[in-house]
């Protein structure tokens, strides 16, 4: 029995580390976007590389947690929900990685007047990820706090949507090539998808929390 508790603590620390990575990826995303918009491309690439490393390590951690949960038949009733949550959270990291890769590959020419809005959009996405991570942590330790975090994720996602819409309208009012407009519009969608993905996970989190409430 003591062995079970020791293994449980090890697994807890792995899940915590995984969530730390997710949170850090969210913060790095905002900082990387700031670097890009400021024209500091070296720092941007450095942060993007860090995101890739974290993503790889997070994948490893997630697989270890999944394997251990199955092999040791831990939390049988909540296992499906926990694994689903971890996998969907991993999608958030993937979205960040993908968005940064798009920026790196396309290196879009962002008009100065739009820079602040892009940063605002990235900031809301990053906040949504932070709230999501707190929500997932609460799911494990304090389910009563989950709805509060889920509510905040939804709030930041809505704010991000408002900025994204405003940004797209402004892009298509600019006197630039259509191809450039489409590229900038796509870029808005990539950045906005972080908050959307965070909200999707948050919705699943709310359902899992109801199932968990004894």
């Amino acid at each position: 029995m003591a062995n079970l508790f020791a293994r449980t603590r090890l697994l807890e620390s792995k899940i915590d580390e995984y969530l730390n990575h997710t949170s850090e990826v969210g913060l790095l995303f905002r900082e990387a976007m700031k670097n890009f918009l400021d024209g500091r491309l070296d720092e941007f690439e450095e942060r993007r590389g860090k995101v890739c490393d974290l993503e790889n390590h997070a994948d490893e951690l997630r697989r270890e947690v999944e394997r251990q949960l199955y092999i040791e038949t831990l939390i049988p009733e909540s296992r499906g929900d926990v694994l689903g949550l971890l996998e969907q959270t991993d999608d958030v990291i993937n979205h960040v990685k993908h968005a940064l890769m798009q920026v790196s590959v396309e290196n879009p020419d962002i008009p100065d007047e739009l820079g602040e809005s892009y940063l605002e959009l990235a900031d809301y996405g990053s906040r949504a990820v932070q709230e999501l991570v707190m929500g997932v942590r609460a799911f494990f330790r304090n389910t009563a706090a989950v709805p509060d975090h889920a509510h905040k994720v939804a709030f930041w996602e809505k704010e991000a949507d408002k900025v994204a819409e405003r940004l797209k309208r402004r892009i298509f009012q600019l006197n630039i090539d259509l191809s450039h407009k489409i590229q900038l519009g796509d870029f808005v969608m990539h950045v906005d998808s972080i908050a959307d993905q965070a909200e999707d996970v948050s919705e699943r989190l709310s359902i899992s929390t109801i199932k968990r409430s004894i």
Binding site: M1, L4, T8, L74, S78, F140, R141, R212, I214
Partner: peptide, 25 residues
């Protein structure tokens, strides 16, 4: 006991995995 268990699990803020191990024991 249900009311008690609910209060204890909410207040103790035990990790889901630790709660699982305790419940098994």
């Amino acid at each position: 006991l249900y009311v008690l268990a609910r209060a204890v699990t909410q207040r103790s803020r035990m990790h889901l995995l630790a709660e699982d191990a305790m419940t098994r024991a």
